[in-house]
Amino acid sequence: MSPPARPPARTAWLVAGLVVVALNLRPALTSVAPVLASIQASLGLTAAHAGLLTTLPVLCLGLFAPLAPRLAARFDAERAVFGVLFVLALGTAVRGQFGTAGLFAGALLAGAAIGVIGVLLPGLVKREFPERASLMMGLYTMALCLGAAAAAGLTVPLRDAFGDWRPALAAWGGFALIAALVWWPQLRGHTRIAPAPGTPVRLMRSPLAWAVTLYMGLQSSLAYIVFGWLPPILVDRGLTALAAGGLMSLSVLVQLVTAFTGPMLATRLGRDQRPTLWLMLTLALIGLLGCLYAPLGSVWLWVILLGLGQGGQFSVAMLLIVLRSGDALTAARLSGMSQGVGYTLAALGPLAVGLLHDWSGTWHGVGALFALVTAAAAAAGSVAGQRRVIT
């Protein structure tokens, strides 16, 4: 069932709300890595502890994703998003308080909030924009990338301005409060769309649903390896923390290009999404290997390739949730499954990098791990990208 027509002004507010909320779903994840060395020196964290810090929010994305449908059923999706934005603000802000305990507790709260909101928004897109899903998912993913780039590039300057990493991390919590203000109009006057009658889709028995879930998790693992560890890798190769954070910001900023164009390319290039999916994975793999092993003077080229690949592979993953679903209810449930199970799987990536580095003392194992996960993501995408629908 399509949603009732709404006035253009209300549509504009909804689009603005989706964009501003999406802008807040990555700063808590990308603001830590640029100042990770300062955090370790200040709190005495080992590389294993640092790996856990980068892994914990991603793990919470998966563990708390199943809570999203329950909140939506009780309060509706719009009110659930509004309330959880305050949890995100609290978690992001508390990372700069109460020492190590506050750092990890804030990471947990922020990860949980992002996991819930990230599940709810694709279902809203499927419900409210059924004929413009690829455009809206491209816009949504572009906003995610912009928020990630801003946090990656501005956290070190904020640390230098404040004289400490703590207020630099806490400052990002204020933007979640701004998002709640922009989202406020969605709490009144909207019409809840009842799900179509019939037996719910048994997603856990669907090979296609599992393929979408595995692709989501594996490509997310690649992304969070980069979010958590690219700046420390570049610093160990000889760059300053400011330069490393700037290059990571450049990589994430470049994602805007394929985050927006990737879904449209994927729906127009052939009968399915596999060619676009394989192209993006290949670009990301070449980019990361260049960051690890190519001459340092050319690293800007490799971070650009890395960003182009990762922006596209994530936007296609989000698009697959919508395209493989026959209706808004299925989209909401597939969003919960793919992000719940997928992000739990994705959390193993940055943790494995921390353990590999602790064990070997070098970053050489990261290249092999990235290539292995890329191959597995391509295999899952070969099934998920086929033009089929879960019915």
Rank of each mutant, 00 (worst) to 15 (best):
G51F: 03
P66T: 11
V226G: 00
I304F: 13
I225F: 00
D160C: 08
G361W: 04
A73K: 06
A50C: 09
A376T: 07
R333T: 02
S206L: 01
V383M: 09
H190A: 11
P207N: 08
G246I: 02
V322E: 02
A73L: 06
R132S: 13
S42T: 13
F162I: 07
G44N: 05
P275D: 01
P263K: 15
G354A: 03
G163H: 15
Q310N: 10
P69Y: 02
A37N: 12
R26F: 15
A50F: 10
L289K: 01
R387F: 01
M137A: 13
S251T: 13
E128Q: 14
G312A: 09
G51C: 07
A332P: 01
L177P: 11
S2L: 06
P57H: 15
S206F: 00
T155D: 09
M337C: 06
L158M: 12
S382A: 15
W13T: 03
V35G: 06
A149G: 02
V119Y: 14
L121Q: 15
V125K: 15
F162H: 04
L256N: 14
G238R: 09
L121C: 10
P3F: 05
A22C: 11
A244D: 14
A168S: 14
L108R: 06
A12E: 06
P167T: 14
M216E: 03
P8V: 03
S220L: 07
A241C: 01
R95L: 01
A65E: 04
T276L: 00
L351T: 12
D76R: 14
